[in-house]
Simulated scan of single mutants.
Amino acid sequence: MPDPLAWDLNVSMVPLNVRFGDETFKDRVDMDSAAFFNRLARSKVLPTTSMPSPGDFKMLYEDVAKTHDAIISIHLSGKLSGTYQAAKTAADGMSGVDVVPVDSGLVSAGMFLLVHAAAQAAARGAGKEEILKIIEDSLRKIRMFFVVDTLEYLQRGGRLSLAGQMIGGMLNVKPILTIKDGVIAPASRARSQKKAIQKVMDYLSSLPHKPSAAVVGHALAPEECKATQALIKSKFGSIKIFTCEIGPVIGTHSGPGCVEIAVM
């Protein structure tokens, strides 16, 4: 979620970390997307990522607790990162405020839609239980896909199944990936990125209910992002479409050229 929108919705974020050798950077705090991909192109070794500490979450929870009596803390899939567990450890140590950590089972654009739905509900005055119900309902509706230029980064980072690696190993194939049961899984493939994105659009068009919102994210692929936005508009009309740049932590695993699409 872009910072200005997060600020408008009163959403606080605890950044993950990306590490190049001995240097550690907080995602979107110490290093933005452009700086990250510029360095990635020059780096001889793949950067690594790490979760925030329970202390990082505790510090934020204590600050938010000064003005709120309940906190809903939404995190990327616990099967892909220890972030949810770190947040849960911090929440278990809190007193005087009700902290509810949520394992979204999602990443990036999918989480964007989930957090946006929860934050909008909070902004209109919904209570904790109503927001948790909205999160539960939203998780059933969110569909998310990645079209990656190469599987190299996911393979090297250990975030892809053998089946997915086999798809990517086919000559001149652009893999289409999704999130299934909290992990990255192969969905389909196409002979070009354009055809892969069109395949995703065809699938989304077959859904029984028209999406109400979409997110298109990209890693150094602004033209592909714009073209995908246009396709979504042509398929679904005047739904709300958000765009975002893939940041350093997700970019470590997606690599440059990735386009992600999430709808709800």
Rank of each mutant, 00 (worst) to 15 (best):
G82T: 05
G82E: 10
G82M: 07
G82K: 05
T83M: 04
Y84N: 11
Y84C: 14
Q85E: 09
Q85Y: 03
Q85P: 00
Q85A: 11
Q85V: 03
A86V: 01
A87W: 00
A87E: 02
A87P: 12
K88L: 13
K88A: 10
K88P: 02
T89K: 05
A90Q: 08
A91Q: 07
A91R: 06
A91M: 15
D92W: 00
D92H: 03
G93N: 12
G93F: 03
G93C: 06
M94C: 12
M94S: 03
M94A: 10
M94V: 10
S95V: 06
S95M: 01
S95A: 09
S95W: 00
G96N: 02
G96C: 15
G96R: 09
D98F: 14
V99Y: 01
V99N: 02
V99G: 06
V100E: 04
V100I: 13
V100D: 03
P101N: 12
P101Q: 12
P101D: 08
V102E: 02
D103S: 12
D103Q: 05
G105L: 07
L106E: 05
V107A: 05
V107I: 13
S108N: 08
S108K: 00
S108T: 14
S108P: 00
S108G: 02
A109N: 10
A109F: 14
A109V: 14
G110Q: 01
G110T: 06
G110M: 01
M111A: 00
M111Y: 01
M111I: 12
F112M: 07
F112K: 00
F112I: 11
L113D: 10
L113N: 11
L114N: 02
L114F: 05
L114G: 13
V115I: 13
V115G: 08
V115R: 01
H116N: 11
A117S: 14
A117G: 09
A117E: 15
A117V: 03
A118S: 13
A119T: 06
A119D: 04
A119W: 06
Q120K: 13
A121S: 15
A121N: 01
A122D: 00
A123E: 14
A123F: 01
R124E: 15
R124P: 00
R124C: 02
G125C: 04
G125N: 04
G125Q: 12
G125S: 08
G125T: 02
A126R: 07
A126L: 12
G127L: 00
G127I: 00
G127Q: 09
G127R: 01
G127N: 15
K128Y: 07
K128G: 10
K128Q: 10
K128T: 07
E129A: 14
E129Y: 11
E129S: 15
E129G: 12
E129M: 10
E129W: 00
E130T: 10
E130M: 11
I131V: 15
I131A: 08
I131E: 03
L132F: 06
K133I: 04
I134P: 09
I134W: 03
I134D: 04
I134H: 04
I135D: 05
I135T: 11
I135S: 08
I135C: 11
I135L: 07
E136P: 12
E136H: 12
D137W: 02
D137M: 13
S138G: 08
K141E: 08
K141L: 04
I142A: 07
I142P: 03
I142Q: 09
